[in-house]
Design a protein around this nucleic acid. Sequence first.
DNA 1: CCATTAAATTCAA
DNA 2: TTGAATTTAATGG
Length: 249
Amino acid sequence: MTSTNVYISSKSKANTDLSCGACLNNNCLIKRNLSILSDSEFVKNKNTLKCKKGQQFIMEGAPVNGLFFILKGTVKVFRTGINGREQIVRFAKEGEIIGHRGFGTEEYYSIGAIALQDSVLCYFSKDHLQSTLLETPKFAYDMMLFYANELNRSENKVKSISQMTVRERVIDSLLYIHRKFGDLSGFLDLPLSRREYADYAGTTEEQVIRVFSALKKENLIIAKGKKIGINDVRFLKQEIDDHNYFLDS
DNA sequence: CCATTAAATTCAA
DNA sequence: TTGAATTTAATGG
Protein backbone atom coordinates (compact mmCIF):
# COMPACT_ATOMS: atom_id res chain seq x y z
CA MET A 1 0.00 0.00 0.00
CA THR A 2 1.02 3.59 -0.24
CA SER A 3 2.83 4.95 2.71
CA THR A 4 1.06 8.14 3.58
CA ASN A 5 3.16 8.96 6.58
CA VAL A 6 6.18 10.57 5.09
CA TYR A 7 8.30 12.06 7.77
CA ILE A 8 11.07 14.16 6.41
CA SER A 9 13.97 13.25 8.59
CA SER A 10 13.54 15.96 11.13
CA LYS A 11 16.08 14.64 13.55
CA SER A 12 19.07 15.70 11.54
CA LYS A 13 19.78 19.35 12.14
CA ALA A 14 21.63 19.57 8.84
CA ASN A 15 18.46 19.03 6.92
CA THR A 16 16.59 21.76 8.74
CA ASP A 17 18.15 24.84 7.30
CA LEU A 18 15.44 27.26 8.20
CA SER A 19 17.19 30.44 7.20
CA CYS A 20 15.42 32.72 4.77
CA GLY A 21 18.08 32.04 2.18
CA ALA A 22 17.16 28.37 2.09
CA CYS A 23 13.45 28.98 2.11
CA LEU A 24 11.52 28.01 -0.99
CA ASN A 25 8.35 29.76 -0.17
CA ASN A 26 7.69 32.44 -2.74
CA ASN A 27 4.48 33.31 -1.05
CA CYS A 28 6.40 34.85 1.77
CA LEU A 29 6.84 38.60 1.76
CA ILE A 30 10.27 38.33 3.23
CA LYS A 31 11.41 35.71 0.79
CA ARG A 32 10.22 37.83 -2.11
CA ASN A 33 12.16 40.79 -0.85
CA LEU A 34 15.16 38.86 0.27
CA SER A 35 17.46 40.47 -2.26
CA ILE A 36 16.94 43.80 -0.52
CA LEU A 37 16.71 42.42 2.96
CA SER A 38 19.40 39.83 3.05
CA ASP A 39 21.85 41.84 5.12
CA SER A 40 19.41 43.33 7.52
CA GLU A 41 19.64 42.49 11.16
CA PHE A 42 16.15 41.25 11.43
CA VAL A 43 16.48 38.45 8.92
CA LYS A 44 19.56 37.27 10.71
CA ASN A 45 17.86 37.44 14.03
CA LYS A 46 14.78 35.49 13.22
CA ASN A 47 13.81 32.54 15.30
CA THR A 48 12.05 29.46 14.14
CA LEU A 49 9.63 27.56 16.23
CA LYS A 50 8.11 24.18 15.67
CA CYS A 51 4.56 23.75 16.64
CA LYS A 52 2.66 20.52 16.98
CA LYS A 53 -0.83 20.05 15.72
CA GLY A 54 -3.31 21.69 18.03
CA GLN A 55 -0.69 23.72 19.82
CA GLN A 56 -1.48 27.32 20.61
CA PHE A 57 1.40 29.67 19.95
CA ILE A 58 -0.30 33.00 20.45
CA MET A 59 -2.32 33.58 23.58
CA GLU A 60 -4.95 36.24 23.70
CA GLY A 61 -3.76 39.01 25.93
CA ALA A 62 -0.09 38.12 25.79
CA PRO A 63 2.31 40.98 25.16
CA VAL A 64 3.36 41.54 21.56
CA ASN A 65 7.02 41.61 20.83
CA GLY A 66 7.26 40.22 17.38
CA LEU A 67 5.33 38.68 14.60
CA PHE A 68 5.07 35.29 13.00
CA PHE A 69 5.37 34.06 9.45
CA ILE A 70 4.28 30.57 8.58
CA LEU A 71 7.06 28.58 7.00
CA LYS A 72 5.12 25.39 6.89
CA GLY A 73 1.67 24.26 7.93
CA THR A 74 -1.67 25.93 8.50
CA VAL A 75 -2.99 27.90 11.38
CA LYS A 76 -6.28 29.22 12.66
CA VAL A 77 -6.55 32.67 14.12
CA PHE A 78 -9.38 33.34 16.52
CA ARG A 79 -10.79 35.64 19.09
CA THR A 80 -12.80 34.58 22.09
CA GLY A 81 -16.29 36.00 22.18
CA ILE A 82 -18.67 36.76 25.00
CA ASN A 83 -19.73 33.32 26.18
CA GLY A 84 -16.36 31.75 25.64
CA ARG A 85 -17.27 31.06 22.08
CA GLU A 86 -14.41 30.94 19.62
CA GLN A 87 -14.74 33.19 16.61
CA ILE A 88 -12.31 32.13 13.93
CA VAL A 89 -11.01 35.19 12.19
CA ARG A 90 -9.14 33.49 9.42
CA PHE A 91 -7.17 30.49 8.36
CA ALA A 92 -3.59 31.08 7.31
CA LYS A 93 -1.20 29.03 5.25
CA GLU A 94 2.45 29.05 4.30
CA GLY A 95 3.94 32.46 3.77
CA GLU A 96 1.28 34.34 5.68
CA ILE A 97 1.72 36.67 8.58
CA ILE A 98 0.23 36.06 12.00
CA GLY A 99 -0.14 38.59 14.75
CA HIS A 100 0.29 41.62 12.55
CA ARG A 101 -2.48 43.60 14.15
CA GLY A 102 -0.60 43.70 17.39
CA PHE A 103 2.14 45.41 15.50
CA GLY A 104 2.48 49.16 16.03
CA THR A 105 0.63 50.64 18.94
CA GLU A 106 -1.05 47.54 20.31
CA GLU A 107 0.67 46.15 23.33
CA TYR A 108 -1.20 42.89 23.70
CA TYR A 109 -2.53 40.35 21.27
CA SER A 110 -6.23 40.54 20.74
CA ILE A 111 -6.21 37.17 19.03
CA GLY A 112 -5.02 33.67 19.63
CA ALA A 113 -3.51 31.29 17.10
CA ILE A 114 -3.40 27.52 17.00
CA ALA A 115 -1.57 25.25 14.57
CA LEU A 116 -3.93 23.00 12.63
CA GLN A 117 -1.10 20.72 11.61
CA ASP A 118 2.47 20.32 12.67
CA SER A 119 3.88 23.64 11.60
CA VAL A 120 7.06 25.64 11.47
CA LEU A 121 6.91 29.32 12.27
CA CYS A 122 9.39 32.10 11.75
CA TYR A 123 9.43 34.69 14.45
CA PHE A 124 10.74 38.19 13.84
CA SER A 125 11.25 40.76 16.51
CA LYS A 126 9.10 43.82 16.36
CA ASP A 127 11.96 46.27 16.80
CA HIS A 128 14.00 44.88 13.96
CA LEU A 129 11.03 44.76 11.70
CA GLN A 130 10.14 48.34 12.46
CA SER A 131 13.51 49.68 11.48
CA THR A 132 13.57 47.52 8.37
CA LEU A 133 10.24 48.90 7.24
CA LEU A 134 11.58 52.42 7.54
CA GLU A 135 14.59 51.60 5.43
CA THR A 136 13.07 49.58 2.60
CA PRO A 137 10.05 51.09 0.86
CA LYS A 138 9.46 48.14 -1.43
CA PHE A 139 9.11 45.85 1.51
CA ALA A 140 6.94 48.33 3.34
CA TYR A 141 4.75 48.60 0.27
CA ASP A 142 4.28 44.84 0.10
CA MET A 143 3.36 44.83 3.74
CA MET A 144 0.87 47.58 3.12
CA LEU A 145 -0.76 45.60 0.36
CA PHE A 146 -1.09 42.73 2.73
CA TYR A 147 -2.76 44.91 5.35
CA ALA A 148 -5.12 46.41 2.80
CA ASN A 149 -6.10 42.97 1.66
CA GLU A 150 -6.76 41.79 5.16
CA LEU A 151 -8.88 44.81 5.90
CA ASN A 152 -10.94 44.23 2.83
CA ARG A 153 -11.53 40.65 3.75
CA SER A 154 -12.38 41.54 7.26
CA GLU A 155 -14.96 44.10 6.13
CA ASN A 156 -16.54 41.55 3.87
CA LYS A 157 -16.81 39.22 6.76
CA VAL A 158 -18.73 41.73 8.79
CA LYS A 159 -21.22 41.93 5.99
CA SER A 160 -21.53 38.21 5.61
CA ILE A 161 -21.98 37.53 9.28
CA SER A 162 -24.54 40.21 9.81
CA GLN A 163 -26.58 39.83 6.64
CA MET A 164 -26.36 36.31 5.33
CA THR A 165 -28.41 33.33 6.37
CA VAL A 166 -26.78 30.39 8.09
CA ARG A 167 -26.84 28.37 4.93
CA GLU A 168 -25.18 31.16 2.99
CA ARG A 169 -22.53 31.66 5.62
CA VAL A 170 -21.68 27.99 5.63
CA ILE A 171 -21.46 27.99 1.84
CA ASP A 172 -19.37 31.11 1.99
CA SER A 173 -16.99 29.37 4.38
CA LEU A 174 -16.70 26.37 2.12
CA LEU A 175 -15.93 28.59 -0.84
CA TYR A 176 -13.37 30.50 1.20
CA ILE A 177 -11.54 27.31 2.08
CA HIS A 178 -11.79 26.23 -1.52
CA ARG A 179 -10.38 29.52 -2.80
CA LYS A 180 -7.60 29.59 -0.34
CA PHE A 181 -6.57 25.97 -0.01
CA GLY A 182 -7.90 24.49 -3.21
CA ASP A 183 -8.79 20.87 -3.55
CA LEU A 184 -6.81 17.73 -3.75
CA SER A 185 -8.39 14.83 -5.63
CA GLY A 186 -11.85 16.22 -5.15
CA PHE A 187 -11.64 17.15 -1.49
CA LEU A 188 -10.78 20.44 0.14
CA ASP A 189 -7.12 20.43 0.92
CA LEU A 190 -7.63 21.39 4.54
CA PRO A 191 -9.39 19.08 6.95
CA LEU A 192 -11.54 21.01 9.37
CA SER A 193 -14.01 19.85 11.96
CA ARG A 194 -17.60 20.99 11.65
CA ARG A 195 -16.97 22.88 14.82
CA GLU A 196 -14.29 24.88 13.06
CA TYR A 197 -16.59 25.64 10.16
CA ALA A 198 -19.13 26.79 12.70
CA ASP A 199 -16.66 28.99 14.49
CA TYR A 200 -15.66 30.58 11.23
CA ALA A 201 -19.19 31.02 9.91
CA GLY A 202 -20.44 32.35 13.22
CA THR A 203 -22.92 29.58 13.89
CA THR A 204 -23.11 26.29 15.78
CA GLU A 205 -21.77 22.88 15.04
CA GLU A 206 -25.26 21.45 14.67
CA GLN A 207 -26.28 24.05 12.13
CA VAL A 208 -23.21 23.31 10.06
CA ILE A 209 -23.91 19.59 10.18
CA ARG A 210 -27.47 20.20 9.06
CA VAL A 211 -26.50 22.48 6.22
CA PHE A 212 -23.90 19.94 5.13
CA SER A 213 -26.53 17.23 5.15
CA ALA A 214 -28.84 19.36 3.03
CA LEU A 215 -26.06 20.14 0.58
CA LYS A 216 -25.22 16.49 0.34
CA LYS A 217 -28.81 15.66 -0.51
CA GLU A 218 -28.71 18.28 -3.22
CA ASN A 219 -25.53 16.72 -4.55
CA LEU A 220 -23.65 19.97 -4.17
CA ILE A 221 -21.00 18.57 -1.86
CA ILE A 222 -19.75 15.23 -0.70
CA ALA A 223 -18.40 14.50 2.74
CA LYS A 224 -16.26 11.72 4.02
CA GLY A 225 -15.56 12.50 7.61
CA LYS A 226 -13.49 15.63 7.72
CA LYS A 227 -12.90 15.56 4.01
CA ILE A 228 -15.33 17.76 2.17
CA GLY A 229 -15.63 17.85 -1.58
CA ILE A 230 -17.40 20.56 -3.53
CA ASN A 231 -19.12 19.22 -6.61
CA ASP A 232 -20.35 22.41 -8.16
CA VAL A 233 -18.40 25.47 -7.16
CA ARG A 234 -20.13 27.75 -9.64
CA PHE A 235 -23.58 26.83 -8.44
CA LEU A 236 -22.72 27.49 -4.82
CA LYS A 237 -21.07 30.75 -5.73
CA GLN A 238 -24.15 31.82 -7.54
CA GLU A 239 -26.36 31.15 -4.57
CA ILE A 240 -24.32 33.68 -2.65
CA ASP A 241 -23.80 36.16 -5.43
CA ASP A 242 -27.53 36.47 -6.02
CA HIS A 243 -27.90 37.65 -2.51
CA ASN A 244 -24.90 39.88 -2.57
CA TYR A 245 -26.31 41.86 -5.43
CA PHE A 246 -28.76 43.45 -3.00
CA LEU A 247 -26.37 43.78 -0.14
CA ASP A 248 -23.73 45.70 -2.00
CA SER A 249 -23.13 49.40 -1.47
C1' DC B 1 -29.13 22.75 24.05
C1' DC B 2 -28.48 17.57 25.25
C1' DA B 3 -28.60 12.42 24.37
C1' DT B 4 -27.95 8.72 21.44
C1' DT B 5 -25.99 6.08 17.81
C1' DA B 6 -22.97 5.79 13.80
C1' DA B 7 -18.77 6.80 11.82
C1' DA B 8 -14.08 8.16 11.64
C1' DT B 9 -9.52 8.89 13.68
C1' DT B 10 -5.89 7.99 16.73
C1' DC B 11 -2.98 5.09 19.33
C1' DA B 12 -0.20 1.44 20.71
C1' DA B 13 1.02 -3.20 20.40
C1' DT C 1 -1.18 -3.50 10.15
C1' DT C 2 -5.00 -4.18 13.22
C1' DG C 3 -8.51 -3.43 16.35
C1' DA C 4 -9.57 -1.21 20.74
C1' DA C 5 -10.10 3.39 22.59
C1' DT C 6 -11.24 7.92 21.83
C1' DT C 7 -13.07 11.64 19.28
C1' DT C 8 -16.19 13.54 15.93
C1' DA C 9 -20.46 13.44 12.99
C1' DA C 10 -25.38 13.10 12.43
C1' DT C 11 -30.15 13.22 14.05
C1' DG C 12 -33.93 13.68 16.74
C1' DG C 13 -36.01 15.27 20.95
